[in-house]
Amino acid sequence: MTAIDEFLSMLAAERGAAANTLSAYRRDLEGAEAAIGDLAAADGTALARLGQAWSELAPSTAARKSSALRQFYGFLVDEGLREDDPGSALPRPAPRRPLPKVLTHAEVEALFGRAEDEASGDRPAAIRLLALLELLYGSGLRATELVSLPLSAVPRDAPLLTVTGKGGQARMVPVGGRARTALSRWLAVRPAGGRHVFPSTAKSGHLSRVRLFQLVKELALRAGIAPERVSPHVLRHAFATHLLEGGADLRVLQTLLGHADIATTQIYTHVDSARLVALVNERHPLARGGARA
């Protein structure tokens, strides 16, 4: 077993890392090894060369790769597989996390207005779309969490869903009255069989993420909103931002979104600040060429 394999085994066993996470770590580590040779034996000089190898990458991508390598060398030292930690020689790009796209309240209303009109009849596809939309914006679910939601996660009475998020971490997510109503309507017309709330004949047994993205963008187009402005993740961002605007506590928001690190949730404070700056620039009298002192 190689040092990389041992490191990945540790991530799986001790941190409960998901398969996708392990694959991402493997790609980053094996890519670095292809660039500079055996990682387990590499010194600081070799690691410093990665800066050139990563020069064309986005800062966020290079920062992720650098983080994977630092963890790898920390593991080697902890396990006694090497005495020194050369991780300090790794490039330290400063990633700039872009502010997430956020829908306005008017756009959300237009999107829901169209979905509700289409679901006013008895067409299962329209009712399903409304339920999907309500859970994306009303509960802030990730696309993968939503499409893979098992029937067992939907309780009969309690207004909560049990969701399995990144890294296999389970959390309780509140479901508002509107979402519960939409979900109940969908379950009443849902095709029999299968163990998922939103079943499919696909190999996975549930609606695919790709199809969910298509459905949301198609709805946006019908609602008169540019499709590139809307996606399941944008609706999750809108859920978080609009809750923060309404006075939600950042720690509560972290729990609702399933973020392991509060730093991830803090991006929404920047979104809110950006909104306030835009509001001042748009509405302040001086911004409109008003009177000067």
Rank of each mutant, 00 (worst) to 15 (best):
M1K: 05
T2K: 06
T2F: 13
D5L: 06
E6V: 15
L8H: 09
S9P: 00
L11V: 14
E14M: 05
R15S: 09
A18R: 01
A19K: 01
N20F: 08
A24V: 15
R26K: 04
R27M: 11
D28N: 06
D28A: 11
L29T: 14
A32H: 04
A34F: 09
A35P: 06
A40Q: 02
D43M: 11
D43Y: 10
T45Q: 07
L47I: 14
L47M: 08
L47V: 12
R49E: 08
L50S: 03
L50Q: 06
Q52E: 09
A53R: 09
A53W: 07
S55C: 12
S55M: 11
E56Q: 05
L57V: 15
A62W: 01
A68H: 01
L69G: 05
Q71L: 13
Y73D: 11
F75G: 14
V77N: 02
E79M: 06
L81R: 03
D84H: 07
D84R: 10
P86L: 13
G87D: 09
S88K: 01
P95W: 00
V102D: 12
T104N: 02
L111C: 08
E116W: 05
P124Q: 04
A126V: 08
A126I: 15
R128I: 14
R128A: 10
L135G: 10
Y137W: 02
Y137C: 14
G138R: 00
S139T: 07
L141G: 07
L141P: 05
L146N: 02
V147H: 00
S152A: 12
D157I: 06
A158G: 09
L161R: 00
T162D: 08
V163N: 02
G165P: 09
K166H: 11
K166I: 12
A170N: 03
R171S: 06
M172F: 04
R180E: 15
T181Y: 03
A182G: 12
S184N: 10
S184M: 10
L187H: 03
R190I: 15
G193R: 00
G194Y: 00
V197N: 03
S200N: 04
T201W: 01
T201K: 00
K203S: 15
K203L: 15
G205N: 01
H206V: 14
H206W: 01
S208I: 08
V216Q: 04
E218D: 11
L219H: 02
L219E: 03
L219Y: 04
R222C: 08
R222N: 07
A223S: 12
A223M: 03
G224T: 12
P227W: 05
P232L: 04
A238G: 05
A238P: 00
F239Q: 05
H242N: 09
D249Y: 00
L250T: 11
R251F: 13
Q254A: 12
L256F: 04
G258H: 02
T265S: 10
Q266H: 05
T269V: 05
T269M: 01
V271T: 13
A274V: 12
A274Q: 06
R275K: 09
V277Q: 06
L279D: 10
N281C: 08
E282I: 06
R283S: 15
R283P: 15
H284Y: 04
H284T: 13
G290E: 07
R292D: 12
